[in-house]
Simulated scan of single mutants.
Amino acid sequence: MIHEVDDALRGLLGESGLEASGVEIVFDAPTRDWAARRNAPTICAFLYDIREDPSRRGSGAGEVYDADGYVVARRTPPRWFELTYLVTAWASRPQDEHRLLSQVLATLVAAEALPERLLTGSLAELGLTVGLETAGAALDAPAASDVWSALGGELKASLGVRVRAPLAGVARAAAPPVTEGLVVRGTERRQHGDPVPGRRLRYEGVSDPGPDGFAGPRERRPAPVRRRRGDRQP
């Protein structure tokens, strides 16, 4: 999930024209040695804090359907995590860095969530909103000064960006739909000693189960129609 958030952030920043103008977008730790090797304008989004949001933890399990509408697996609810990034701009002059950081700020504050078109992998499969908060005053994460101190670098203008993303639950395969019939035979016999024919269960309208009996393969019936939430019964 984390790398999918990285890809979506890169795509969102790239759409602002940064990459087209030759600005690199990286996710490296901006240490002193890393900064010394920079030779091109760069936007660095350093992920430095990951925390679960326990208030959004669910219970139970949801159903996963195949293309025909049959249940193929059951999945536990997703768990939500907050990913906090330290976003900085790197250039040869402070004025250029501020211009780049301003462009990044304008792009990120315009979006309250990562665009659906940029989501890939499990994020796209879940179809849930991936929230985005930029330069929020209530970011519950280590202070930027503490991060710079841990990296061994000098304090620099930066943006705090938080992404709230779901981690897909564990999926367990469900048993396949029943396609074989069941025949019940009793011990009662007729007067001539012949056994009483078995009583047929399932497969209404079938008079002869064939040489293999009801254990033979049968064509699957169409899956039942699933009602969407909010639909009323006729």
Rank of each mutant, 00 (worst) to 15 (best):
H3K: 08
H3I: 10
V5E: 09
D6H: 14
D7H: 10
A8Q: 07
G11A: 14
L12H: 09
L13A: 05
E15M: 11
S16F: 08
S16V: 09
E19S: 14
S21N: 14
V23I: 06
E24C: 05
I25D: 09
I25A: 06
I25T: 02
V26I: 13
V26G: 07
D28F: 12
R37C: 10
P41Q: 09
I43H: 04
I50S: 12
R51G: 13
S55E: 11
R56W: 07
A61R: 11
V64D: 06
Y65C: 02
Y70D: 00
V72I: 07
P77V: 03
W80F: 15
Y85L: 08
L86V: 07
L86T: 04
V87A: 03
V87I: 08
W90E: 11
D96S: 14
H98K: 05
L100V: 06
S102G: 14
Q103L: 09
L105I: 01
L105V: 01
A106H: 12
L108V: 03
V109G: 03
L114S: 06
T120S: 15
L123H: 12
A124R: 15
E125W: 02
E125D: 15
G127K: 08
T129I: 15
T129M: 13
V130C: 05
V130R: 04
E133R: 13
A138V: 04
L139E: 14
D140L: 13
D140A: 15
D140S: 15
A141Y: 06
A141L: 09
A144K: 07
A150P: 03
A150K: 06
A150Q: 10
G153K: 08
K156L: 12
K156N: 14
V161R: 04
A165P: 05
P166A: 13
L167W: 10
A168G: 10
A171G: 04
A173F: 00
A174V: 00
A175T: 06
T179A: 15
G181A: 05
V183E: 15
E188G: 09
R189H: 08
R189G: 04
R190T: 10
H192F: 07
H192S: 09
G193Y: 01
V196Y: 10
R199Q: 07
R202L: 15
G205R: 01
V206F: 00
D208W: 04
D208M: 03
P209D: 13
G210V: 02
D212T: 12
A215V: 08
A215M: 12
E219V: 01
A223V: 00
P224K: 01
P224T: 01
R226M: 01
R228P: 02
G230L: 08
D231P: 00
D231M: 03
Q233D: 10
